[in-house]
Design a protein around this nucleic acid. Structure first.
Lengths: 299, 299
DNA sequence: TAAAAATACTCCATAGGTATTTTAT
DNA sequence: ATAAAATACCTATGGAGTATTTTTA
């Protein structure tokens, strides 16, 4: 009969590629681990590992069994989490990932509100780009992520939080433009964007459909604050999310902010979690706190 | 430490709602099962079952743990299936479900072709309606289902097989109609359909968007063959899938078949399986056999 | 009170430890 | 020759069995 123990040992073996070290990380001896691996192989009737002098490698079957095993171990962890959290909402540890174009502008309002509404919550924060956050969610290293929707991943569930409109930021000495011409501005080659990998860059490029991204001069900016400085310095124009503007990120007399006519281009910020993780209630509660601490700012 | 054994026992307890009978189905004694359940409760720190004189019921936490446990046990079964099938395609047992409006017209061609191309395949067939097939797929009682796409279910993966156009069947003594008027026919109240629950009924109703289904007279027909007899008898008109027509299901001199102008209404037949089941290779192989045995018929 | 689950104990299968041998480079 | 995995053998944990007590409707 297959056992969770065997799956744990196989996972360690895949990670370390070494029987001895795998046994060590499992806090058992090498023969004990060898035995369990062998029994798993015998039960499944297939070789899972190639034993070679220089370490160990998994066979194709081994890779598949290990992958499925990891999913099972995650699900077992979910059972424990679900039982521990049963009835309790937003208590204990919650590992939250947030993208860089949201975290600095929302957290100063969100964290105090959360501490007030859910004092037992132990929030563990991580700021990173979308694809990394998703990978960590899937590996069970993160519970929830706040990022720009939609997320195309079958094992993800998501919940929209709020719409975040884009504003156009131009140097203050630029002449004003009628609303209908503002879209035009975006097709200039002095559009300033975050460096590759930031979702905000992709979204801005989607807004400027007719712009050839190869024509863009790159400044390697990694923060919106830097980009605003570039705009203030007359080096170009950019798109800024309203969330950033509300947090006074663009409060510079040398920068003028222009709204788009309806329907304004926007992004949708939302929460994402591993579909099978027992986090529905936590996510709903978190969402309502976020919305509550956004609302007054919009008024 | 949580164990698969505990999850199996909990599943049996949920099924039987009785410690003694649950133990019996697990081929152990009642105290052994009681102990494991209690250890699971202690480990999780939450009551999973309410013990009452008249049977047993799961608490909310118990329901959740049991549901997650069943998913884990399915995944463990998948590991064994994946290992057993490794490298082998369409060998051993495959439990295939097919909807009633496909099975009788495809199987006579498909089964001989399959026996020739994959002699080691032990096919176990089941004919049922879409929603039942999906439920059985999810419960792990079926490996693959052939039905009309799309299937809206997050845990399903699917692969299209072929398009199946609809033809209009009218009594032979009806006057012929120009192609452009054929759509008109569908809005009559003598449209004959399969009884509720058959996906073909829903698809036909979608084609006849302007028809009020409440106006339809019901004949309680459960097979296309019966419906063809009704049409032959002058009791109305119907939509027939090309697959059925090709199998000579409508070869009756009292029935005239009319094609629709392009784009003709159609359904898409495809294969569906539980996303996490190790059936990708089998499904791909099955799909190519199906397509191969459809192709000559179309020529 | 009687049916059902929990407890008490005993036994044994098996996971794991230590010591040693085999294997592959 | 040596590092690493397999094998041999022993120990002990814990899962399961039998007998019995406790619980509750």
């Amino acid at each position: 009969m297959i056992s969770l123990r065997q799956l744990r040992y196989l996972e360690a073996l895949e990670r370390t590629r070494h029987f001895g070290r795998a046994a060590e990380t499992c806090a058992i001896t090498q023969p004990a681990l060898s035995m369990q691996i062998r029994e798993l192989e015998e039960h499944l009737g297939v070789a899972l590992v190639e034993r070679r002098r220089d370490g160990v490698r998994l066979t194709a079957a081994g890779e598949e069994v290990a992958a499925r095993g990891k999913a099972i171990l995650l699900a077992v962890g979910d059972i424990e989490a679900a039982a521990a959290a049963h009835g309790r909402v937003l208590e204990g540890r919650l590992r939250l990932g947030i993208i860089p174009s949201v975290a600095p502008f929302l957290l100063p309002r969100l964290l105090p509100a959360l501490r007030r509404s859910h004092p037992k919550l132990e929030l563990s924060l991580r700021e990173s780009q979308t694809d990394l956050l998703i990978a960590e969610l899937m590996a069970g290293e993160l519970d929830v992520a706040m990022l720009s929707l939609p997320v195309e991943h079958a094992d993800c569930a998501s919940l929209p939080l709020f719409d975040d409109a884009f504003l156009l930021a131009v140097p203050a000495d630029a002449r004003d433009l009628p609303e209908t011409d503002r879209q035009e501005l975006l097709n200039r080659d002095d559009l300033l964007l975050l460096e590759d990998g930031h979702c905000l860059r992709d979204q801005a490029l989607k807004v400027c459909a007719s712009l050839d991204p190869r024509r863009l001069r790159s400044y390697g900016a990694t923060s919106l604050t830097t980009i605003v400085q570039l705009v203030a310095n007359g080096q170009g124009v950019t798109l800024l999310p309203e969330l950033f503007v509300e947090a006074d990120g663009a409060a510079d007399p040398r920068v003028r902010l222009l709204r788009f006519p309806d329907p304004a281009p926007k992004r949708e910020v939302g929460l994402v979690w591993r579909r099978s993780a027992p986090r529905r209630a936590d996510v709903e509660a978190l969402a309502s706190v976020v919305r509550a601490c956004r609302a007054p700012a919009a008024a």
